[in-house]
């Protein structure tokens, strides 16, 4: 039971970070491998505020998200927008370039070591139920993720902004024709995606660690979530992260010899069975 709960918590964390990617990759159809770099930025902002400025943990989370969103907006306005119409390969190359730069930058400013992170008192420790140990921080992650999943789903499915966004993605020309400011929608969406990355990165420091190789180490996981969940589908990402989180933790716990092999195998098999993802719809273009 504890293994399953830990798996769910780790899946939720995966979801928190990769849902941002689901927004940019899935909704905007941009293969943004630099997503992990934004998550890393959020992590560093959070850790720096916490350790050097003494800001409380809960207050540093929104700051991390906002700072990352700001960086996202600047990059989107200057660079990303030029590549919306480019091929996936160009987008991949471009974002790998950004990843390399972010790794070198993190080395320069923070050094190669792991960043320490001390959680506030009320998030430490665990409940002990019969047969189940629940870490409080893990419970906190699960609740927060579910709230974000619900909120995002409402935003995309049930609001005017969401409708405009889906229209802008499916047919930018027609969307412009009916008076939707497609550029503004894309910038806002990109900001949302990077803010979620930053938030996820900040929350993930405790479980995933934080060092300059973060963007490369975990990008595979984020991509798996989006690819398996079906692009642009928030509930799909949630289910996919849960499956992957549980499989990954259970795999590492019960058959440590084969390590991360399980997760890649699961991904490849899922992609072969359903190339468009678990809940995917056919891409619009």
């Amino acid at each position: 039971m504890t293994v399953i709960f830990d798996g769910i918590a780790s899946g939720m964390l995966l979801f928190l970070i990769s849902v941002g990617l689901s927004v940019t990759l899935g909704l905007m159809n941009f293969v943004n491998l630099a997503h992990g770099a934004f998550a890393m930025l959020g992590g560093y902002v959070c850790v720096t505020l916490l350790n050097r400025a003494g800001v409380p943990f809960l207050a540093s989370l929104p700051v991390a998200a906002l700072a990352t969103a700001l960086a996202g907006v600047v990059l989107e306005r200057t660079l990303y927008r030029r590549l919306y119409a480019a091929t996936h390969l160009d987008q991949v190359l471009f974002s790998i370039g950004l990843v390399f730069m972010s790794i070198a930058g993190a080395h320069y400013f923070f050094g190669a070591q792991q960043q320490p992170m001390v959680l506030p008192e009320f998030l430490q420790g665990q409940f002990n139920l019969p047969g189940l140990d629940i870490g409080i921080y893990r419970l906190f992650l699960v609740v927060l993720s579910l709230a974000i999943a619900y909120g995002l789903n409402r935003l995309v499915r049930g609001t005017r902004f969401g409708a405009q966004l889906r229209a802008a993605v499916d047919n930018p020309r027609a969307a412009r024709g009916v008076g939707i400011n497609v550029e503004r929608i894309f910038t806002l969406t990109f900001a949302l995606g990077t803010a979620l990355a930053g938030l996820g990165g900040a929350l993930g420091v405790e479980m995933l660690g934080l060092d300059p190789s973060f963007p490369v180490k975990y990008i595979v996981y984020f991509l798996i979530v989006v690819a398996v969940g079906g692009s642009g589908n928030i509930m799909g990402s949630l289910v996919a992260s849960l499956i992957l989180g549980v499989v990954d933790v259970a795999g590492k716990y019960y058959v440590p010899q084969i390590g991360a092999f399980v997760i890649y195998a699961v991904m490849v098999v899922m992609l072969i069975v359903r190339p468009q993802g678990l809940f995917g719809r056919r891409a619009a273009r």
Partner: peptide
């Protein structure tokens, strides 16, 4: 089997599996 994005992921997955092995 897949389009660009799936290809990227499958090739990546295959190479990561070999790496782990």
């Amino acid at each position: 089997r897949g389009a660009d994005l799936t290809r990227l992921m499958v090739t990546l997955g295959v190479s990561m599996m070999l790496y782990e092995i």
